[in-house]
Design a protein around this nucleic acid. Structure first.
Lengths: 331, 331
DNA sequence: TTGAAAGCGCTAACAG
DNA sequence: CTGTTAGCGCTTTCAA
């Protein structure tokens, strides 16, 4: 069995409460006793039982991360960012993949909520109302989603789309197609809106092709419709969709970027491995994960009764990565 | 505050122990009282506090999953399998990504060990000795690694390589190159050995090209050396390496499969998205995750004092996925 | 500055 | 079949 606080107390010749204090609020205990306790703890390899501590403090020291699909390379990056920051704060991370199932999502969130101090919901598929409810029950930070003024980390899609459009305009494109993501995806809506604004501002025509699954297959499905629009360039919901599009275009004998320019969003690693390599808007994924944890931790340190005044959300800027797939393809 | 067992007891008009029993060992309590308790619990939305339960049962109801790199698409598949099975057993999963850092790995494992009932170590980078030590301290199931007779789920690489070689031989290849993974990778060693055996058995010449990082870049790095061997076909440590190889071959003006046939291992989704699509040995990744959880759960049900007799490990068979990248390229 | 005592929410003997 | 009792390992009053 692992050493308990009593073992340490006995070895150090003090009471358990002194051990507890020496280890968690060192300044409250005499330097000499503190040293005795610490060496005793060290020699026994003592580490407090977190469950027992949690029982009394009401803190688990755990954090939950819920996301739609680990198979989409976007999310592992976020996970990495979250883990790196959580680890530094000695917080363990439960990860739950909902498989893009919005019903499963709520269930998972509810189940996780009981075992963690706070939850990070990345690109949640639930409705605003559901998210409000969840946020009322437990501390939550959203990533890639904005609901009222719930704490959130989002990407500045307006700016990202502005960059993408500016790039395409510089290449001579005047008619751009947009392949949207899932209809219930907040970020698809944001990206579409940002794109519409950018297109209007820069005087190019935008053709919306509809909603597609956020996978390779979604891009395959969208390709023929994109071609039919007569657009000379296309921007897709994410890189996976762009790569699927590339696949189908290749199959149909279209050359990218000669016949059509393609721009994705995310900059997953695969974007640089595709052929042609994919031009895309890089989103700071790991950074988003890190900041989400920081936000969550800061929220948790504040007594629930206190009114928060910190900024409710933070927007991260993306940057255009230009690769083969848009090399002057306009006519 | 969430409802406690006392709230339920009061509402149902019974003692807390009856509530406890009614909820966890229903057959030990009278049907009528059981019903009363259950409806009381339901109306209060009661769910037992797992930390409190764990304190007394010694079980956390949690499981830890440690893996080298979530950015490698192989691992998210395993995670999905693990989660699916764990969820069904009402077990939550801590996920820890070591970033391919073998030192970090031990630390993470030690930290996680205190908060879980058991650990699944997927493709661990630690030494055999370290793994033995860990297994002595906590219940562990290895995935994609064999150490003594520690419980493990592995893939049958011998058979996978046999299939790959048979396929290439049928296409007329007589000289096959092997691009190994990291020198300290157990599975690279296994795959290489399986391949050597298969090559010998089927009378083809095998040329080993050395060890490369298990990423796209590793394949890029290996490509020129592969070409220099004069082999007409190449098998790589994993799909990521194969795709990198494809990239470099394309850059150098070689056509796959006309100039060289390529076979990967894993069958990550990207294999079907590459151009040409990649022939590969599909490993049942999710299944491995599921079985690992099952193994772990079954180990945990057995009192620590009892000697286990169950099979120490289970080997899963892979299957060849034939795609464009090997279409009769022999001469 | 330290110790004694009282629980956190739950389960597990042990009686009845 | 059910209630009483006694903790699991820890933190936190409250006194000293």
């Amino acid at each position: 069995m692992a050493a308990t606080i009593r073992d340490v107390a006995r070895l150090a010749g003090v009471s358990t409460s002194t051990v507890s204090r020496a280890l968690s609020v060192p300044e409250l205990v005499n330097a000499a006793t503190r040293a005795k306790v610490q060496s005793a703890a060290a020699s026994l390899g003592y580490a407090p039982n977190r469950a027992a501590r949690g029982l009394i403090t009401g803190r688990t020291g755990n954090l939950g991360l819920v996301l739609p699909d680990l198979a989409n390379p976007f999310f592992p990056s976020v996970v990495k960012g979250v883990q790196a920051r959580a680890r530094a704060a000695d917080v363990a991370v439960f990860v739950a993949d909902t498989d893009e199932d919005d019903l499963a999502e709520i269930g998972l969130v509810r189940a996780l909520a009981k075992q963690v101090d706070g939850l990070i919901l990345c690109s949640p598929r639930s409705t605003d109302d559901e998210l409000r409810e969840i946020a009322a029950e437990t501390t939550v930070v959203l990533v890639n989603r904005l609901v009222d003024d719930l704490p959130a980390v989002v990407f500045d899609h307006r700016d990202g789309m502005r960059q993408a459009v500016a790039h395409l305009v510089a290449l001579g494109h005047r008619r751009i197609a947009w392949v949207g993501g899932p209809a219930n995806s907040w970020s698809s809506e944001q990206r579409g809106a940002g794109l519409a604004a950018a297109a209007a501002a820069q005087g190019v025509e935008l053709v919306e092709v509809g909603h597609f699954p956020p996978y390779y297959d979604g891009g395959m499905a969208a390709a023929d419709q994109v071609v039919a629009t007569g657009a000379t360039a296309v921007i897709t919901y994410n890189d996976l969709v762009a790569i699927g599009l590339l696949g189908r275009l290749h199959f149909r004998g279209f050359f990218v970027p000669d016949d059509l320019s393609v721009v994705g969003i995310d900059d997953i690693e695969m974007a640089a491995m595709a052929r042609p390599t994919l031009t895309t808007v890089r989103l700071p994924k790991q950074q988003a994960g890190r900041i989400a944890v920081e936000l969550l931790l800061s929220l948790l340190d504040i007594p629930a009764s206190t009114e928060r005044e910190r900024p409710a959300h933070r927007a991260l800027t993306g940057e255009l990565m230009v690769r083969d797939s848009t090399a002057d393809a306009a006519r």
